[in-house]
Design a protein around this nucleic acid. Structure first.
Length: 271
DNA sequence: ACGAAGCCCTGCAAGC
DNA sequence: TGCTTGCAGGGCTTCG
C-alpha cells in the first residue's frame, strides 16, 4: 500500500483525530521491525500531546513532546485507528493510546516498517537528510530530472524510484507515470531529452495527485478493523494489467523485471 | 560515484 | 490435500 499517495492519505485521515490529543500509553508487542523500536519510546512520549503530523517522502513525522516519532510503513504496513477496547490483530506490533477514545495501531505483517524517535531536527536525521525533492513541490519539473539524470546509466524506472532524486515514487506509480508519459521504463535515464522529462515530471505529479484524490488504498474506515481496498486500483492502466489491451494504443501491456521489481509497460507506445 | 545484488520478514497464490 | 516455490506496493547495506 504505502507509496506517497497512501502515506499522504493516511496523514490527512489521522490529523483531525490525533492532532491535539494526548498519547496516553504505548504498547510494543513486537520491537523487531526494520530497526528495533526504541525501548525508551514510551517514557519519551507518554503524556505528551501530538502537536502535528507531517509527511516527508514515505515517512510520517508525529511531533510529540520534545521530538518526533518517525514512522515508515515499509512494504506491508498500515496505520489505523481503532476504538479503545477493540482487540488487536496478530500483526499490530506497535500501538499508541490517543486520548481516551482511540488506539493508533501499526499493522505490518512483513515488519519492514520503522518506528523511531527523533530528538533533533528531523531533516538532519540520517534516514531523511539525503532524500530528494517532493514530486508535488514547485521545484519538481523536467529541468530538475533532466539535470539530475545526465550521465546516469540506470533504467529510467530505477531513476525515478531513487529516493535521493525524487521521493515517494514506488513500484506501482513508477510504472503508471512512465506509461502515461509514453517513456519506456528500460530506457537509460541519461539519454532522455529535457522535453520528455518535462512530460514525465508532469505525469509523476498527476499520477500522485489522482491517487491522493482517489483516497489511496488504506485507512478508509477508522473504526473497523480492516481497511477497504481503496479506489485508485481501478484507475491503474499499466500495473498488474499484463496481457490486457493498452489504453493508449493498439498494443498489449507486457511485463518485465527491472532492478528486481516487476514492471508493466506497453512496448508499442512507450519508447 | 555509480550500479547491481543481498538481505530483512510473513503471507499468499500457483504449481506439482 | 499438502508441500514447495516464487512473488509481493521498500530501502539500507554491501560489494564490485
Amino acid at each position: 500500500m504505502p507509496e506517497l499517495p497512501e502515506v499522504e492519505t493516511t496523514v490527512r485521515a489521522l490529523r483531525p483525530h490525533v492532532c491535539g490529543q494526548t498519547v496516553s500509553d504505548i504498547v510494543v508487542r513486537q520491537p523487531k521491525l526494520r530497526w528495533p523500536v526504541p525501548g525508551e519510546l514510551a517514557e519519551l512520549v507518554r503524556g505528551s500531546k501530538v502537536a502535528n503530523i507531517e509527511r516527508r517522502a514515505k515517512y510520517m513525522l508525529f511531533a510529540v513532546g520534545s521530538g518526533h516519532v518517525l514512522i515508515h510503513l515499509g512494504m506491508s504496513g498500515s496505520l489505523r485507528l481503532s476504538v479503545a477496547g477493540e482487540p488487536p490483530g496478530p500483526h499490530d506490533h506497535v500501538e499508541f493510546g490517543i486520548g481516551d477514545k482511540w488506539r493508533l495501531r501499526l499493522r505490518d505483517p512483513r515488519r519492514f516498517g520503522t518506528v523511531l524517535w527523533v530528538a533533533g531536527d528531523p531533516g538532519e536525521h540520517r534516514l531523511l537528510r539525503d532524500l530528494g525533492i517532493e514530486p508535488l513541490s514547485g521545484g519538481f519539473d523536467g529541468t530538475y530530472l533532466h539535470r539530475a539524470s545526465r550521465s546516469r546509466k540506470v533504467a529510467v524506472k530505477n531513476f525515478i524510484m531513487d529516493q535521493r532524486i525524487v521521493v515517494g515514487v514506488g513500484n506501482i506509480y513508477a510504472s503508471e507515470a512512465l506509461f502515461q508519459a509514453g517513456v519506456n521504463p528500460k530506457r537509460r535515464a541519461g539519454i532522455i531529452s529535457a522535453k520528455r522529462y518535462g512530460r514525465l515530471a508532469e505525469c509523476v505529479r498527476s499520477t500522485m495527485e489522482s491517487a491522493i484524490a482517489a483516497g489511496g488504498t488504506t485507512l478508509r474506515d477508522f473504526t473497523s478493523g480492516d481497511s477497504s481496498p481503496g479506489y485508485f486500483k481501478q484507475e491503474l492502466q499499466a500495473y498488474g494489467r499484463e496481457g490486457e489491451p493498452c489504453e493508449r494504443c493498439a498494443g498489449v501491456i507486457e511485463t518485465c523485471v527491472i532492478g528486481g521489481r516487476s514492471t508493466y509497460y506497453c512496448k508499442l507506445c512507450q519508447r
